[in-house]
Protein backbone atom coordinates (compact mmCIF):
# COMPACT_ATOMS: atom_id res chain seq x y z
CA UNK A 1 0.00 0.00 0.00
CA UNK A 2 1.44 3.33 -0.96
CA UNK A 3 0.20 6.22 1.16
CA UNK A 4 1.81 8.86 -1.02
CA UNK A 5 -0.09 7.95 -4.13
CA UNK A 6 -3.37 8.08 -2.23
CA UNK A 7 -2.30 11.10 -0.23
CA UNK A 8 -4.26 13.67 -2.14
CA UNK A 9 -7.39 11.57 -2.23
CA UNK A 10 -7.33 10.18 1.28
CA UNK A 11 -7.23 13.50 3.07
CA UNK A 12 -9.99 14.81 0.87
CA UNK A 13 -12.76 12.29 1.38
CA UNK A 14 -15.73 14.56 1.63
CA UNK A 15 -18.46 12.00 1.14
CA UNK A 16 -19.36 8.53 2.30
CA UNK A 17 -19.71 7.62 -1.37
CA UNK A 18 -16.02 8.34 -2.01
CA UNK A 19 -15.05 6.35 1.08
CA UNK A 20 -17.11 3.36 -0.02
CA UNK A 21 -15.81 3.60 -3.56
CA UNK A 22 -12.20 3.58 -2.40
CA UNK A 23 -12.79 0.57 -0.14
CA UNK A 24 -14.64 -1.41 -2.80
CA UNK A 25 -12.16 -0.59 -5.54
CA UNK A 26 -9.35 -2.04 -3.45
CA UNK A 27 -11.45 -4.75 -1.78
CA UNK A 28 -10.57 -3.58 1.70
CA UNK A 29 -12.65 -2.69 4.73
CA UNK A 30 -13.88 0.85 5.31
CA UNK A 31 -11.79 0.92 8.45
CA UNK A 32 -8.63 0.27 6.42
CA UNK A 33 -9.30 3.34 4.26
CA UNK A 34 -10.10 5.45 7.30
CA UNK A 35 -6.97 4.35 9.14
CA UNK A 36 -4.87 5.38 6.13
CA UNK A 37 -6.58 8.74 6.18
CA UNK A 38 -5.87 9.10 9.89
CA UNK A 39 -2.18 8.21 9.50
CA UNK A 40 -2.00 10.88 6.83
CA UNK A 41 -3.69 13.62 8.87
CA UNK A 42 -2.10 12.86 12.23
CA UNK A 43 1.49 12.10 11.29
CA UNK A 44 1.37 9.11 13.64
CA UNK A 45 2.08 5.53 12.66
CA UNK A 46 -0.62 2.94 12.12
CA UNK A 47 0.44 1.12 15.30
CA UNK A 48 0.21 4.32 17.32
CA UNK A 49 -3.30 5.20 16.22
CA UNK A 50 -4.49 1.62 16.70
CA UNK A 51 -3.01 1.60 20.19
CA UNK A 52 -4.68 4.90 21.03
CA UNK A 53 -8.05 3.63 19.84
CA UNK A 54 -7.57 0.40 21.81
CA UNK A 55 -7.01 2.46 24.95
CA UNK A 56 -10.25 4.29 24.30
CA UNK A 57 -12.00 0.96 23.81
CA UNK A 58 -10.75 -0.21 27.22
CA UNK A 59 -12.16 2.94 28.82
CA UNK A 60 -15.50 2.34 27.05
CA UNK A 61 -15.65 -1.22 28.37
CA UNK A 62 -14.71 -0.14 31.86
CA UNK A 63 -17.39 2.56 31.89
CA UNK A 64 -20.05 -0.01 30.97
CA UNK A 65 -18.90 -2.43 33.66
CA UNK A 66 -18.80 0.25 36.34
CA UNK A 67 -22.22 1.57 35.36
CA UNK A 68 -23.80 -1.88 35.56
CA UNK A 69 -22.05 -2.96 38.76
CA UNK A 70 -22.02 0.15 40.91
CA UNK A 71 -24.56 2.62 39.61
CA UNK A 72 -24.43 6.07 41.19
CA UNK A 73 -26.99 8.83 41.32
CA UNK A 74 -26.29 11.50 38.75
CA UNK A 75 -24.99 14.92 39.78
CA UNK A 76 -28.40 16.49 39.18
CA UNK A 77 -30.13 13.55 40.86
CA UNK A 78 -32.50 12.83 37.97
CA UNK A 79 -31.10 9.46 36.87
CA UNK A 80 -29.06 6.51 38.10
CA UNK A 81 -29.40 2.73 38.19
CA UNK A 82 -31.61 2.30 35.11
CA UNK A 83 -28.99 0.34 33.17
CA UNK A 84 -28.59 -2.13 35.99
CA UNK A 85 -32.36 -2.44 36.31
CA UNK A 86 -32.80 -3.38 32.67
CA UNK A 87 -29.84 -5.75 32.79
CA UNK A 88 -31.35 -7.63 35.71
CA UNK A 89 -34.79 -7.69 34.11
CA UNK A 90 -33.52 -9.21 30.88
CA UNK A 91 -31.47 -11.98 32.52
CA UNK A 92 -33.02 -15.38 32.03
CA UNK A 93 -36.35 -14.04 30.75
CA UNK A 94 -37.88 -13.90 27.37
CA UNK A 95 -38.08 -10.19 26.61
CA UNK A 96 -40.02 -8.31 23.98
CA UNK A 97 -37.05 -6.76 22.23
CA UNK A 98 -34.79 -9.79 22.62
CA UNK A 99 -31.52 -10.40 24.46
CA UNK A 100 -29.11 -8.52 22.22
CA UNK A 101 -31.07 -5.30 22.17
CA UNK A 102 -31.72 -5.33 25.89
CA UNK A 103 -28.11 -6.11 26.62
CA UNK A 104 -26.93 -3.25 24.40
CA UNK A 105 -29.47 -0.81 25.80
CA UNK A 106 -28.64 -1.64 29.41
CA UNK A 107 -24.97 -0.99 28.68
CA UNK A 108 -25.71 2.23 26.81
CA UNK A 109 -27.78 3.45 29.78
CA UNK A 110 -25.05 2.40 32.19
CA UNK A 111 -22.38 4.39 30.35
CA UNK A 112 -24.63 7.45 30.11
CA UNK A 113 -25.18 7.20 33.87
CA UNK A 114 -21.45 6.97 34.53
CA UNK A 115 -21.07 10.17 32.53
CA UNK A 116 -23.83 11.93 34.47
CA UNK A 117 -22.21 10.96 37.78
CA UNK A 118 -18.77 12.32 36.84
CA UNK A 119 -17.25 8.98 35.95
CA UNK A 120 -14.71 8.46 33.17
CA UNK A 121 -16.10 7.99 29.64
CA UNK A 122 -15.06 8.42 26.02
CA UNK A 123 -16.98 11.15 24.17
CA UNK A 124 -18.57 9.28 21.23
CA UNK A 125 -19.03 11.66 19.51
CA UNK A 126 -20.09 13.75 22.54
CA UNK A 127 -20.33 13.13 26.27
CA UNK A 128 -24.14 13.22 26.07
CA UNK A 129 -24.22 10.40 23.51
CA UNK A 130 -21.31 8.42 24.96
CA UNK A 131 -23.30 5.22 25.69
CA UNK A 132 -24.35 4.16 22.20
CA UNK A 133 -21.09 2.87 20.67
CA UNK A 134 -19.87 1.02 23.77
CA UNK A 135 -23.39 -0.36 24.32
CA UNK A 136 -23.69 -2.06 20.93
CA UNK A 137 -20.05 -2.96 20.37
CA UNK A 138 -19.67 -4.58 23.76
CA UNK A 139 -22.77 -6.62 23.05
CA UNK A 140 -21.63 -7.90 19.64
CA UNK A 141 -18.21 -8.61 21.08
CA UNK A 142 -19.77 -10.86 23.71
CA UNK A 143 -22.42 -12.45 21.52
CA UNK A 144 -20.15 -13.21 18.56
CA UNK A 145 -16.77 -13.56 20.28
CA UNK A 146 -15.14 -10.70 18.39
CA UNK A 147 -11.50 -9.92 19.25
CA UNK A 148 -10.63 -6.40 20.45
CA UNK A 149 -8.63 -5.76 17.28
CA UNK A 150 -11.74 -6.00 15.13
CA UNK A 151 -13.71 -3.80 17.48
CA UNK A 152 -10.93 -1.21 17.22
CA UNK A 153 -11.31 -1.36 13.43
CA UNK A 154 -15.05 -0.86 13.79
CA UNK A 155 -14.38 2.19 15.95
CA UNK A 156 -12.31 3.63 13.12
CA UNK A 157 -15.18 3.02 10.73
CA UNK A 158 -17.53 4.76 13.15
CA UNK A 159 -15.24 7.74 13.54
CA UNK A 160 -14.60 8.00 9.78
CA UNK A 161 -18.31 8.34 9.15
CA UNK A 162 -18.48 10.69 12.13
CA UNK A 163 -15.90 12.92 10.46
CA UNK A 164 -18.06 13.24 7.37
CA UNK A 165 -21.17 13.88 9.47
CA UNK A 166 -19.27 16.56 11.42
CA UNK A 167 -18.06 18.19 8.21
CA UNK A 168 -21.28 18.05 6.21
CA UNK A 169 -23.81 18.38 9.03
CA UNK A 170 -22.94 18.61 12.72
CA UNK A 171 -22.17 16.54 15.80
CA UNK A 172 -23.24 19.15 18.32
CA UNK A 173 -26.62 19.41 20.04
CA UNK A 174 -26.30 23.20 20.22
CA UNK A 175 -25.92 23.30 16.44
CA UNK A 176 -28.07 20.47 15.19
CA UNK A 177 -30.22 19.10 18.00
CA UNK A 178 -30.02 15.57 19.37
CA UNK A 179 -30.13 14.10 15.86
CA UNK A 180 -26.56 15.42 15.64
CA UNK A 181 -25.49 13.75 18.90
CA UNK A 182 -27.43 10.55 19.64
CA UNK A 183 -28.51 10.38 16.00
CA UNK A 184 -24.97 10.65 14.69
CA UNK A 185 -23.78 8.13 17.28
CA UNK A 186 -26.46 5.65 16.19
CA UNK A 187 -25.54 6.10 12.52
CA UNK A 188 -21.85 5.66 13.26
CA UNK A 189 -22.58 2.60 15.41
CA UNK A 190 -24.80 1.04 12.75
CA UNK A 191 -22.03 1.26 10.15
CA UNK A 192 -19.53 -0.15 12.63
CA UNK A 193 -21.84 -3.10 13.37
CA UNK A 194 -22.22 -3.91 9.69
CA UNK A 195 -18.45 -4.04 9.28
CA UNK A 196 -18.01 -6.23 12.37
CA UNK A 197 -20.55 -8.72 10.99
CA UNK A 198 -18.84 -8.93 7.62
CA UNK A 199 -21.18 -6.70 5.63
CA UNK A 200 -19.93 -4.72 2.64
CA UNK A 201 -18.86 -1.06 2.75
CA UNK A 202 -22.00 -0.19 0.76
CA UNK A 203 -24.15 -1.97 3.35
CA UNK A 204 -22.44 0.02 6.10
CA UNK A 205 -23.39 3.18 4.21
CA UNK A 206 -27.02 2.07 4.00
CA UNK A 207 -27.11 1.30 7.73
CA UNK A 208 -25.71 4.76 8.48
CA UNK A 209 -28.31 6.37 6.20
CA UNK A 210 -31.29 4.45 7.60
CA UNK A 211 -30.29 5.23 11.18
CA UNK A 212 -30.02 8.95 10.48
CA UNK A 213 -33.29 9.00 8.57
CA UNK A 214 -35.04 7.62 11.63
CA UNK A 215 -33.87 10.40 13.93
CA UNK A 216 -34.25 13.32 11.55
CA UNK A 217 -35.62 16.28 13.48
CA UNK A 218 -34.80 14.92 16.94
CA UNK A 219 -34.48 17.95 19.19
CA UNK A 220 -32.06 18.72 22.02
CA UNK A 221 -34.08 19.65 25.09
CA UNK A 222 -32.19 18.74 28.27
CA UNK A 223 -34.25 19.25 31.42
CA UNK A 224 -32.66 21.88 33.66
CA UNK A 225 -29.80 22.03 31.16
CA UNK A 226 -28.33 18.83 32.60
CA UNK A 227 -27.00 15.89 30.59
CA UNK A 228 -29.50 13.52 32.23
CA UNK A 229 -33.10 13.75 30.99
CA UNK A 230 -33.76 12.82 28.19
CA UNK A 231 -30.09 12.21 27.29
CA UNK A 232 -29.59 8.81 28.94
CA UNK A 233 -32.73 7.33 27.40
CA UNK A 234 -31.84 8.75 24.00
CA UNK A 235 -28.72 6.60 24.30
CA UNK A 236 -31.11 3.67 24.64
CA UNK A 237 -32.85 4.78 21.47
CA UNK A 238 -29.53 5.08 19.64
CA UNK A 239 -28.28 1.66 20.67
CA UNK A 240 -31.47 -0.21 19.76
CA UNK A 241 -31.80 1.67 16.50
CA UNK A 242 -28.21 0.89 15.50
CA UNK A 243 -28.74 -2.85 15.98
CA UNK A 244 -32.02 -2.91 14.07
CA UNK A 245 -30.82 -0.92 11.06
CA UNK A 246 -27.55 -2.88 10.91
CA UNK A 247 -29.61 -6.06 10.62
CA UNK A 248 -31.74 -4.44 7.93
CA UNK A 249 -28.67 -3.45 5.92
CA UNK A 250 -27.09 -6.89 6.37
CA UNK A 251 -30.32 -8.39 5.02
CA UNK A 252 -29.78 -6.35 1.88
CA UNK A 253 -32.26 -3.54 2.51
CA UNK A 254 -31.06 -0.30 0.96
CA UNK A 255 -31.71 3.33 1.73
CA UNK A 256 -33.55 4.94 -1.18
CA UNK A 257 -32.03 8.32 -0.35
CA UNK A 258 -28.21 8.04 -0.62
CA UNK A 259 -26.32 8.37 2.65
CA UNK A 260 -24.56 11.63 1.75
CA UNK A 261 -27.86 13.28 0.93
CA UNK A 262 -29.29 12.08 4.23
CA UNK A 263 -26.32 13.57 6.09
CA UNK A 264 -26.69 16.93 4.36
CA UNK A 265 -30.40 16.90 5.07
CA UNK A 266 -29.71 16.24 8.75
CA UNK A 267 -27.54 19.36 8.79
CA UNK A 268 -30.27 21.41 7.12
CA UNK A 269 -32.93 20.20 9.53
CA UNK A 270 -30.60 21.03 12.41
CA UNK A 271 -30.10 24.58 11.24
CA UNK A 272 -33.86 24.94 10.76
CA UNK A 273 -34.54 23.98 14.40
CA UNK A 274 -35.39 26.96 16.58
CA UNK A 275 -32.80 27.87 19.16
CA UNK A 276 -35.17 26.75 21.92
CA UNK A 277 -34.64 23.16 20.71
CA UNK A 278 -30.89 23.31 20.46
CA UNK A 279 -29.47 22.69 23.94
CA UNK A 280 -30.75 25.91 25.46
CA UNK A 281 -33.18 24.02 27.74
CA UNK A 282 -35.97 26.40 26.68
CA UNK A 283 -38.18 24.06 24.66
CA UNK A 284 -39.30 20.46 24.29
CA UNK A 285 -39.15 18.31 27.42
CA UNK A 286 -37.29 21.05 29.28
CA UNK A 287 -40.34 23.24 28.82
CA UNK A 288 -42.95 20.75 30.11
CA UNK A 289 -44.56 21.47 33.50
CA UNK A 290 -42.47 18.71 35.09
CA UNK A 291 -39.35 19.82 33.25
CA UNK A 292 -39.78 23.35 34.52
CA UNK A 293 -40.53 22.20 38.04
CA UNK A 294 -37.38 20.06 38.12
CA UNK A 295 -35.42 23.02 36.82
CA UNK A 296 -36.68 25.25 39.61
CA UNK A 297 -36.09 22.67 42.28
CA UNK A 298 -32.60 22.23 41.00
CA UNK A 299 -31.86 25.95 40.89
CA UNK A 300 -33.05 26.32 44.48
CA UNK A 301 -30.76 23.48 45.50
CA UNK A 302 -27.82 25.23 43.85
CA UNK A 303 -28.51 28.54 45.56
CA UNK A 304 -29.12 27.13 49.05
CA UNK A 305 -26.00 25.05 49.14
CA UNK A 306 -23.64 27.70 47.82
Amino acid sequence: MNYISFGVITVHFRSVKELIHEAEKRSIKLSAVIKEMEVEVQEYSLEQIEQRMLEQWYVMKESAHIGLKEPKKSMGGLIGGEGKKLNEYRRGTKTLAGQEINKAVSRALAVAEVNASMGKIVAAPTAGSCGILPGVLLTVQEEFNIPDKEIVDALFTASGLGIIIAQRASISGAEGGCQAECGAAAAMAAAALVEVRGGSPAQAGHACAIALKNVLGLVCDPVAGLVEVPCAKRNALGASLALVVADMALAGIESVIPVDEVIISMGEVGRALPESLRETAQGGLANTPTGKELNEKFLRKCVCQS
Partner: peptide, 24 residues
Protein backbone atom coordinates in the same frame (compact mmCIF):
# COMPACT_ATOMS: atom_id res chain seq x y z
CA UNK B 1 -13.86 22.80 5.76
CA UNK B 2 -12.15 21.70 8.93
CA UNK B 3 -9.84 18.70 8.84
CA UNK B 4 -10.92 16.29 11.61
CA UNK B 5 -9.01 13.46 13.18
CA UNK B 6 -10.78 10.23 14.17
CA UNK B 7 -9.91 11.21 17.74
CA UNK B 8 -11.86 14.45 17.48
CA UNK B 9 -14.91 12.27 16.88
CA UNK B 10 -14.19 9.41 19.30
CA UNK B 11 -12.59 10.97 22.34
CA UNK B 12 -11.42 12.59 24.43
CA UNK B 13 -11.38 10.30 27.43
CA UNK B 14 -12.93 12.56 30.04
CA UNK B 15 -14.82 12.74 33.27
CA UNK B 16 -18.44 13.64 32.53
CA UNK B 17 -21.00 14.94 32.24
CA UNK B 18 -20.28 17.85 29.90
CA UNK B 19 -17.35 18.91 27.77
CA UNK B 20 -18.10 22.61 28.24
CA UNK B 21 -19.27 22.60 31.87
CA UNK B 22 -16.95 19.89 33.22
CA UNK B 23 -13.90 19.28 31.01
CA UNK B 24 -13.64 22.99 30.13
Amino acid sequence: MREYSCFDILGPIMVGPSSSHTAG
